[in-house]
Amino acid sequence: MLYPERLPRFTRVPAPVEASALLEWVWIPQWDLPAGAQSRQPVLAYPAANIVVDADGVTLWGATTRVSERVLRGSGWAVGALLRPAALACLSDAPGALVDAHAVLDDEPTGGLHRAVVAAMPDVQAAADVVAGWLERVVGPVTAEARLANDMAELLMTDAGILGVDDAAERLRVSVRTLQRLAHRMVGVSPAAMIRRRRLQEAAQRVRDEPGTSLAAIAANLGYADQAHLANDFRTVLGITATDYRAAR
């Protein structure tokens, strides 16, 4: 969330242990805005899919390569789950086709997920449990390949020491080609794209939360060649400069 201070009520529920191979967490925004008011929230999303239930239905959103924007008006809620590759591989046979796109899921094929979440809200824990339980039933046992894909995504998105695909392949003890095929088949974007997104997310958070740290220092600490490369990432993906982002906050 690039401007978290603009958010209405927002709850993040950790994945239950029994569903931790399928989702990272469940996120639930709720809002009740005055007539005519709106809340705009640019989002630099994780390179992963989300399944989202709201008052209108169930939508499967693929990984994104750019910033998206949510505009909230009136009152409402959404219950979303940040999916791990093991879950996405069972919900879509072509994750690449979902990149920067989405698919609306019918309620009957989803086993009444929409009805169950609507019935659970506004109890956020109950709604999160519904989504996690549904994923467990739909996905079933997690295969060895799916666990490897989960390990790959976790490594690429959490380890700042992984600066290139070669680093990740060596850590996971697989070939670069194996890693690339796995990412394409079970995430939809390349390992290199996942590394770039993690680095940009970290950069945005540090630019926002560390006003006393120079942009050059942030760039160096995150493995950018120089401040110019950080600036280029900001302009290309976010559409603003790091300096302007910091000033806006």
Rank of each mutant, 00 (worst) to 15 (best):
G80L: 11
S75W: 10
V52C: 08
L72F: 15
E69C: 15
P47D: 03
D107H: 04
Y46V: 15
V52I: 14
P85K: 08
S68N: 13
A48H: 09
V71T: 10
A78G: 09
E108S: 11
L88E: 01
R66Y: 14
Q41M: 13
R70S: 05
P85E: 13
D54V: 00
A48F: 11
D54L: 11
G76H: 04
Q41Y: 14
A81P: 03
S92K: 07
V99D: 00
D106K: 07
V67S: 10
A48G: 14
V53N: 05
A101I: 06
A78K: 01
A97M: 09
A89R: 06
R66E: 13
A86V: 12
I51F: 05
D100W: 13
A78V: 01
A48C: 13
W61Q: 06
G62D: 00
S92N: 01
P85F: 02
L88T: 08
V52G: 02
T64V: 12
T64I: 07
R70Q: 14
L72W: 12
A97F: 04
R84Y: 01
V43Q: 08
D54T: 01
L105D: 04
A103C: 13
E108N: 08
L98A: 05
V71W: 02
A103N: 09
A101H: 15
A49L: 08
D106S: 13
V58I: 13
A103S: 09
P47E: 05
E69P: 05
G76S: 08
C90K: 12
G74F: 11
A101D: 15
H102C: 11
P109C: 07
A55W: 05
D107W: 02
L105G: 07
A45H: 10
R66N: 12
E108P: 08
R40K: 05
A49Y: 10
D107R: 02
P95I: 04
L83H: 00
G80H: 03
A89Y: 03
E108Y: 06
G57H: 02
G76I: 06
S39H: 09
L83K: 01
S68I: 15
R40G: 13
A103T: 07
V53A: 03
P95K: 00
T59G: 11
V79A: 12
W77D: 01
A49S: 09
Q41P: 04
V53R: 00
Q41T: 06
D106N: 10
V52D: 01
P42Y: 04
A48R: 12
L83C: 13
P47M: 10
